[in-house]
Design a protein around this nucleic acid. Sequence first.
DNA 1: AAATCCAACTGATGTAAATCAACTCAAGGT
DNA 2: ACCTTGAGTTGATTTACATCAGTTGGATTT
Lengths: 262, 262
Amino acid sequence: MAADRFIIERDFLIIETTVKKIIVGFAKPLSCHNCRMNNFCLPLGLDADDLDKLEELIERKKPLQPREGVFFSGDPFTSIYAVRSGSIKSFCIDPDGREQVTGFYFPGEIFGWDGLADEHYQNTAIALETTSVCEIPYEQLDDLGNSIPSIQKHMMRLISREINADQRLIALLAGNSAQQKIASLLLSISDRLVKQKLSSTRLWLPMSRGEISNYLGLTVETVSRVLGHFQRKKYLAVNKKEIEILDKQALRDLMLSAEEVE
Amino acid sequence: MAADRFIIERDFLIIETTVKKIIVGFAKPLSCHNCRMNNFCLPLGLDADDLDKLEELIERKKPLQPREGVFFSGDPFTSIYAVRSGSIKSFCIDPDGREQVTGFYFPGEIFGWDGLADEHYQNTAIALETTSVCEIPYEQLDDLGNSIPSIQKHMMRLISREINADQRLIALLAGNSAQQKIASLLLSISDRLVKQKLSSTRLWLPMSRGEISNYLGLTVETVSRVLGHFQRKKYLAVNKKEIEILDKQALRDLMLSAEEVE
DNA sequence: AAATCCAACTGATGTAAATCAACTCAAGGT
DNA sequence: ACCTTGAGTTGATTTACATCAGTTGGATTT
């Protein structure tokens, strides 16, 4: 008990007790200027002046605990969000009550656009791990867009990115085998980790096997078996949620053709 | 040969010869005000003044022949399009060269947003039948949006609709059986025909079985068999591309639960 | 340290849909 | 009137993945 102390990890201010760590806030004042992600997040392509104005409306919330929700299906649409650190899963509930994962979001990626059309979020978004997000109130963003055309244009481009991502997923789901789906997801996550200046080959999956299988339209057993198969073929080294990509080219090749013989 | 004459069908001016009809243009000056679709197309929610300004930039192109392209994957992004009559299929080419249908668009629906993010269309869009579209040059639309906030807001809402549609398709592809996928598509098309003030039960599919199967991640044979099955169960009457929905509730029930026994 | 829990993995079996292979039929061309 | 072509359907067979049924191992509780 006497051992409790404050420490700093990443951007977080943390109380470390003998048994666990509790994130209590940010270690330093946050701004897009000093954000690791500013090269491809919301600020991308904005000049310093516009960025300053945009900054004023961004609210940095206190970090989310794992499984904590950002917004829920049916909530009135108020804001879009950027992942600052950690990861987010977004999912909707089918008419028959089943959950369907529609996306995973990593640092620098924007989520929440789905609520714009009818002013209520269609999806629920929850943190997969300890996660911090930047909230951008839409009404204010919209006002800013009306006075600064470059921000407006930028915003449209960001929404369109979501369309592109969704359509890539559609193509993946409609026309690929279990192996191709999983290879594709791993390569996609790997690419996105590079943007965080992390290793492209050693990755840590924040989501469970169940969440992966749901996202890809498979079962947990199949995901498990395919990962096992990739490991046996020395494409991967798998240790629970830790994955090392040993042969990225083999995974890429898998996307292009039917699998070579065993 | 002497029998050639001009006739008018729908909005089209047509030369009728003894053997075939050729569409040569529009029968009357076109405007959103007199468009059958104005209740839920681009104009939705705009007041008369704003609509007038929007109208000025809309180009009504001469009707497209079946299979004719509107834009092609890789083309520079210039415009978005609204279907005025007929239907459009949009598709992309996978890394491995396969075609993947990403959407079907019916009158009043907008397509082309996918090109916004990187200023080149990701998809190719072609007419499934004789089709007329309204072209809205994006640069001008954007300028108009900058001076008229309501148009801006409206535009964002339209893009978000595309996201919602794509995510519904993701959920359909990831978690449903062949029967559920096909039931869902038919119900969706039926709903959209109602907006054209057409029958919700007698419908004509402008796309081939191959295009349906590709869109839903199935094979032509499966589509054919499921339609046959639905016909035997008296859910549908199928005659090539003509479908009559006999038991809409049965199709809806299919979406909610595993199928009842044969 | 034993008991509980749950995510992940593995094996045996079942099945929905893919694949392979005809066959039908309407449309167009010669 | 005959031949070709391609979309659609139907049947037989195969297969990839789901389902069912344990087992394992790490984390949490008692």
